[in-house]
Design a protein around this nucleic acid. Structure first.
Lengths: 168, 168
DNA sequence: TCAAACTTTCAATTTATTTTGAAAATCCGA
DNA sequence: TCGGATTTTCAAAATAAATTGAAAGTTTGA
């Protein structure tokens, strides 16, 4: 397979993967493009390679920066901004886990906490099942949250070692 | 908080969580509704509770059945179909992991395999970075895939015990 | 076999999301 | 401070995804 062909295929693939995970296609494609680029790229280069508008390119690069997946690379003597992606996929994955945990799991736990304070006077079968389910969900999500939290802090502590054994 | 209010809040919350994970809002809401219902529900009841059309209800129930999260519950003497959801959230989570792994990770690994067979004659910096990155990604994804695979098979083997220790 | 009960399909519509592109804002050297 | 280079914003347009609802299909009891 030729380089250009493979590159396109990868950008495509990464893009549609993103789509399945609630990440917009273009953002994932910009990420893919930066991942495989040995040098940092300007907005123009991104526009050119992906055939997207300036506004779109700008927006998605900004968002990738918010996610902590991409950084600005200011070159001396250049007024333009260049961008590069964290190349260590493991680190990038941890970064994504960390962000999603913060953005989604934490609020959900919060909501579950509120909801659980259900009127105890209501003892219908429905209300009982509901309360039970809330406890159950909170428990499982809480545990998942705990693992992800540990995992995302795990760059150099015991859990990493433990996980690595599982991964061997 | 009153039961009806809490119920609504939960259905809402579960729905918007789904949205962030590439699952359509209604499907997640139907799932939420069935999760907290102590009895199985008919299509009519689902339409009524969520204020959605018959077609929509049918489609999303079908999809939940495909995901292995919901089953038909045929009541003797009733011609209608009723539906109930797996109530053990841990099992449901495993089911989701299993499905997504099959639907997304496996195809991605496949694509990466193809892409890696890159024309070795091309020794530009770009091509080298690309090949390196493909190897890196395949490695991380392969490991994640391995963990998820083990996890989803883990109902009663060693990994479950090991994970449980991490979770304590 | 018929017909009512029920489920599924799918083209048309509605709703939500993404993208564009040009104007406004910002930045920076002289 | 000015003016060109660059980035950011955002209303409008384009695209994508979800939803409806009625027609078609299926199942079942008599």
């Amino acid at each position: 397979m030729k380089h250009e062909e493979a590159k396109l295929k990868f950008i495509q693939g990464w893009g549609s993967l993103g789509t399945n995970w609630g990440i917009n296609r273009t953002m994932a494609q910009v990420h893919a493009l930066l991942l495989i680029s040995p040098t940092s790229l300007s907005t123009e280069q991104i526009m050119e390679e992906l055939q997207i508008s300036r506004g779109n390119a700008n927006m998605n690069v900004r968002e990738l920066i918010n996610w902590g997946l991409v950084r600005k690379d200011l070159k001396p003597g250049e007024r333009k901004e260049f961008f590069y992606a964290e190349k260590d996929i493991w680190k990038a994955a941890m970064q994504i886990i960390k962000e999603r945990r913060k953005r989604e799991l934490e609020p959900l736990m919060q909501v579950l906490g509120e909801i659980k304070s259900l009127d105890k006077a209501d003892d219908s079968a429905e209300a009982k099942e509901f309360t039970k389910m809330m406890g159950n969900i909170e428990d499982v999500i809480g545990k998942a949250d705990g693992v992800l939290d540990k995992l995302s802090r795990a760059q150099d502590n015991w859990l990493m070692g433990t996980m690595m054994k599982l991964l061997k």
